[in-house]
Amino acid sequence: MPPDQDLYDLLGVARDADADAIKKAYRRLARQLHPDVNPDPQTQERFKEVSRAYEILSDPQKRAAYDRGGDVFGGAGGFGAGFSFTDIMDAFFGGQGGPTGRGPRPRSHRGQDALIRMEVSLAEAAFGVTRELKVDTAVVCTTCRGEGTAPGTHPVPCETCRGSGEVAHVQRSFLGEIRTLRPCSACRGFGTLIPDPCRECSGDGRIRARRSITVKIPPGVDHGTRVQLAAEGEVGPGGGPPGDLYVEVYVEPHEVFSREGTTLHCAVTVPMTAAALGTTLTVPTLEADLESGAGSGLETSFELDLKAGTQSGSELTFRGRGVPGLRGGRGDLVVTVVVDTPTRLDPRQEELLRELAAIRDEEKPDGRLGSSRGSGSVFGRIRDAFNGH
């Protein structure tokens, strides 16, 4: 910290700020400058300076001494006597049980999470599926078992820091002696050196390998759902515990059914004669796509009774024939009826239709105009304009 640097300016608070304002200012700056967020050396040094300022201004006695221009850095109770900025960092960023003390940092760290994509059919997404997948991740080195050293060798204590992982830097100023601890540059803060690294992993303690895992997709997943497999991700440096593996589900489009949540939709096309007279149709279920569907007792189809006079666009809802929910229950199947009007007629068919039209007095229909508020038709917009909507 520069000798002329004002501690209040460092925290961005007024000289008459109360303890609560000082704490809030420090927390805000600590979150911005934390080494996990900004690992560059300049930011880390700035973080230390902010922490030093907070250590002094948060202590009423040290703050009073600083305001009087006294020595708050040296002496038996000063910062140079052993204050650790990591103590405050632990208090605000998840330290367990208060200050933990300084020491060498471990070579072993938790590995990163991994993400793979898995394509499934609509039926597999609905009813669940279990598959064997090949994944390429970091695993523990089989030669050194994660230690990073060549066979028969082990890490040795660093002679520069004597195994502490830190070295002291002392700077004198008009305020006194400022003593700081920094990670040892020789061992990079580990406290040990690896004189003979493992040739298989180059001292990292892990290698990349392709392996098989069993993935169980639960019933009811949808497109984009991520299934978490704990401890199946990347092994960490130094043979650290693995992260998690996330399997992102991609549901392939279906040729018959479309999905909306737990609701299935499909369309059935019938000739106009069947729509007018009524008929019975056989409609497949989603279970028909399962390999175990045939001969397993699953209902792979059902009978749909189409009433006489069914109009095109009519929707028929069948309860409990949709997609199972992740939390239980099952959605519905909505069948939309599409009436197929013939475009080509032979002479006899045309004669019969004209005869039917004459019998029904439909030879020259005027057409019927009706409300089309939902469709946004021209007639609907004209009517709404006149009605002031």
Results as ranks from 00 to 15, higher is better:
Glu234Asn: 09
Ile213Phe: 03
Arg179Glu: 06
Ala186Phe: 09
Ile217Phe: 05
Leu193Lys: 04
His154Pro: 02
Thr137Leu: 07
Glu159Thr: 14
Val129Leu: 05
Ala168His: 12
Leu193Gly: 10
Asp196Phe: 03
Thr225Arg: 09
Pro151Val: 06
Ile217Met: 03
Glu200Leu: 13
Gly128Glu: 03
Ala231Asn: 15
Val129Gly: 00
Val227Asp: 04
Pro151Arg: 06
Val135Glu: 12
Cys201Gly: 06
Gly189Lys: 02
Gly220Gln: 05
Ala138Met: 14
Val170Met: 11
Ala168Gly: 07
Cys187Tyr: 00
Thr160Trp: 04
Gly191Glu: 03
Arg199Phe: 10
Lys216Gln: 13
Gly165Ile: 06
Gly233Leu: 00
Val140Gln: 06
Thr143Glu: 15
Pro155Trp: 05
Cys187Asn: 00
Gly152Thr: 08
Pro151Thr: 03
Ala168Ile: 13
Ile194Lys: 13
Gly203His: 04
Cys201Leu: 05
Cys144Trp: 09
Arg188Leu: 14
Val135Phe: 09
Arg188Glu: 11
Pro197Phe: 01
Gly220Lys: 08
Glu124Ala: 13
Ala230Ser: 09
Thr160Gly: 03
Ile213Leu: 15
Cys161Arg: 01
Val167Arg: 07
Arg172Tyr: 11
Gly220Pro: 09
Ser173Cys: 08
Thr149Ser: 01
Thr143Gln: 15
Thr149Lys: 01
Lys134Cys: 04
Thr214Tyr: 08
Phe190Trp: 06
Pro195Met: 09
Ala186Tyr: 12
Phe174Val: 13
Val140Asp: 09
Asp222Glu: 13
Ala125Phe: 10
Val140Met: 11
Thr214Arg: 11
Phe127Thr: 05
Ser164Ala: 11
Arg208Val: 05
Thr149Cys: 00
Gly128Val: 04
Pro197Val: 00
Lys134Thr: 14
Val156Phe: 01
Arg182Cys: 10
Val235Arg: 05
Cys141Asp: 00
Phe190Ala: 15
Leu181Val: 13
Ala168Asp: 12
Ile207Pro: 08
Asp196Arg: 06
Ser164Cys: 01
Leu175Met: 14
Ser185Asn: 06
Ala230Gly: 03
Phe174Leu: 10
His154Ser: 13
Thr149Gln: 01
Val139Gln: 13
Arg188Thr: 14
Cys161Asp: 01
Glu147Ile: 12
Val156Ser: 03
His169Asp: 08
Thr160His: 03
Gly163Asn: 01
Gly224Leu: 06
Ile194His: 06
Thr160Phe: 01
Thr142Asn: 15
Cys158Leu: 02
Pro219Asn: 14
Ala138Cys: 13
Gly224Asp: 04
